[in-house]
Design a binder for these strands. Structure first.
Length: 572
RNA sequence: CGGGGCGUGGCGCAGUUUGGCUAGCGCGCCUGCCUUGGGAGCAGGAGGCCGGAGGUUCAAAUCCUCUCGCCCCGACCA
């Protein structure tokens, strides 16, 4: 490709609305352009990187017996009604009607449509395991699209679905995908750490997310430096420590204190001069229409996912002001467990608390010296809090550390949730009908590219790993007006092409500074500079983008040197 | 959805508080000259119904109303 013809409009200045490095660089380097909030057009260079990631994914999916299909983006509502998700998915689903008034959606994911496809064709255990995947656009009307490709409303995703005869076979599919993922991300040039995760709306119980650690990540990951434990904060367990006391604690007298205007733990602890960890946070929820209270220590955050699991409820939301007033007799900010006539669920940490500060269920008042058993009873103690860095590891003696992560992939064991709901069954060797046991496995393709850039850039621009670089090499004649240079550039360009190297010739009549800046910004792993001085000596200069290392190479050896550099991965 | 901010040429911004006559600046773009190892220089030039609609006024980028779009923070932690 000639640089003069390449449609890659680079930007000298950083677009104002791009916040993180990958977003800024993808715009500046001319990889993509925004078309609407959370929607992007890919330009030639961006598309080439995307395609390379897709190709790596294909190879690894095929290697574990995956077969590629392409499913519709526009999906009929009926299928989603069968699985029950037409209602569940809510505002995040793009919905549309055809001219007959039939309802459709733009697929946010494809469990329904693939299950429908497979149920009508697969009848026998002999036809499984079946592993089908696609690389397709997905649509989610995100509440808040941001950070370019990190959280878009339209995004490219590889999704594989596995269909197996039983749990054991699913396990094999699951771990095959898990290990394929590790290979995929490694080949793309990023480290992606598998962490235990929550399965969210998709369902299922066993699931891992693959996280690229980066400060710009939207997820918080907790991991143990001493063992293998790593989990998304949504999932991370907090351990119950036994209550051990040398002697009976001295219980203070329950007393009411005026706390005008103090509604938050911060305000209360400030006002009463107590530590947040000596306060109990009383949160009122409506679970399937029933009002309950959840208690956590003042300095802890509740984990609603854990609460939801404990209660086993369909819907769970924080109570509104009116409900709170009805249940407690006080406005928001003054709820407490003492005298509260609704079921109380408390985090394990609350077991340890003595002489706690709690809301008094009365405007502008709190209670001091509230104590378990004596002053209030708790229905159930459970792990309800959000784990945080510094917490003990649930698996060993270590302490958890925290890091931010970009979720580039997730693998799920779905079980029979969809196959049961949608009647995807088969006959086993005894002629007995059973639901297929499913798994699903996603990779955000664009997000992976963005994550790679987050981890591979410097002040000058992108530093592509060779494996997904849009092009491997850029040949830069310093001056196109110099015939010897122009000719040598053209010749090298042709030789590299003949050798199968993906190469761009910067044939623009620009000053060298401009060409170098663009080359660095776009991030070609290797640059060959052809200048008059070196050329007179019959040499060219090879620069490695990642290290900045320069080497003067005899013109005759340039192609073989580059081939070796690309092969041994020194430029990665 | 709540809070904050922003919409002025392809990009980055000034001008808006205190309405005023040809709407500016830098980058980019076009032409010519010149220059060629890290975003050169000189000269000339193109390009903007100031997001949109309505209103106030002799006069609106500027004031008022409505609307659309975008960005950031938060989204129930009492």
């Amino acid at each position: 490709m000639y640089m003069s013809q390449l449609y890659s409009p680079t930007l000298r200045e950083t677009p104002a609305d791009a916040e993180i490095a990958s977003h800024q660089l993808m715009l500046r380097a001319g990889l993509m352009r925004r078309s609407a909030a959370g929607m992007y057009a890919f330009l030639p260079l961006g598309l080439r990187a995307i395609r390379k990631v897709e190709q790596i994914i294909r190879e690894e999916m095929n290697a574990i017996g995956g077969q590629e299909v392409l499913l519709p983006i526009v999906q009929p509502a009926e299928l989603w009604e069968e699985s029950g998700r037409w209602g569940d998915y809510g505002d995040e689903m793009f919905r549309l009607k055809d001219r007959q008034g039939r309802q459709f959606c733009l697929g946010p994911t494809h469990e329904e449509i693939i299950t429908a496809l497979v149920r009508s064709e697969v009848r026998s255990y002999r036809q499984m395991p079946l592993r089908l995947y696609q690389i397709q656009n997905k649509y989610r009307d995100e509440i808040r699209p941001r950070f370019g490709l990190m959280r878009g409303r339209e995004f490219i995703m590889k999704d594989m679905y596995s269909f197996d005869r039983d749990e054991e076979a699913l396990d094999a599919s699951y771990w095959a995908a898990y290990h394929a993922y590790a290979r995929i991300f490694a080949r793309c040039g990023v480290e992606a750490h598998p962490v235990e995760a929550d399965s969210g709306a998709i369902g299922g119980d066993v699931t891992h997310e693959f996280m690229v650690l980066a400060d710009s990540g939207e997820d918080l990951v907790l991991f143990c430096p001493k063992c293998e434990y790593a989990a998304n904060v949504e999932r991370a367990e907090s351990v119950r420590t036994p209550v051990q006391r040398e002697e009976k604690p001295e219980l203070g007298e329950l007393a009411k204190a005026a706390t005008p205007g103090a509604r938050t733990i911060e305000q209360i602890s400030e006002f009463l001069q107590v530590k947040p960890e000596d306060c109990i946070k009383t949160l009122l929820y409506v679970a399937d229409g029933k009002v309950i209270a959840a208690l956590v220590r003042g300095d802890h955050n509740i984990n609603e996912i854990k609460l939801r699991k404990l209660l086993g409820c369909e819907t769970l939301e924080l109570a509104d002001d009116e409900t709170i007033f009805k249940a407690t007799g006080a406005p928001v900010g003054f709820a407490g467990p003492v005298g509260l006539k609704i079921p109380l669920y408390a985090d394990y940490a609350v077991e340890h608390m003595v002489n706690a500060v709690v809301g008094a269920n009365e405007l502008d008042h709190h209670m001091l010296n509230a104590n378990l058993e004596r002053d209030f009873q708790v229905e159930v103690f459970a792990d309800l809090r959000e784990a945080q860095p510094g917490d003990p590891c649930p698996r060993c003696e270590g302490r958890l550390e925290g890091a931010r992560g970009i979720e580039v992939g997730q693998v799920f064991k779905l079980g029979t949730k969809y196959s049961r709901a949608m009647g995807a069954t088969f006959l086993d060797e005894n002629g007995k009908e059973a639901p297929m046991v499913m798994g699903c496995y996603g990779i955000g393709v664009g997000r992976t590219v963005a994550a790679v850039i987050e981890k591979n850039h410097d002040d000058d621009g992108i530093i592509w790993p060779v494996s997904i670089a849009p092009y491997h090499v850029i040949v830069v004649p310093v001056s196109m007006k110099d015939e010897a240079q122009a000719e040598a550039g053209q010749k090298l360009y042709e030789e590299l092409q003949a050798a199968g190297v993906e190469v761009v010739l910067d044939d623009r009549n620009e000053r060298p500074g401009v060409k170098f800046k663009d080359a660095d910004l776009i991030g070609f792993p290797i640059r060959v500079t052809i200048g008059s001085k070196s050329l007179e000596q019959g040499a060219m200069e090879i620069t490695i983008r990642r290290t900045g290392e320069k080497m003067l190479v005899p013109a005759a050896d340039v192609v073989s040197t580059i081939e070796n550099l690309l092969k041994d991965g020194e430029t990665r």
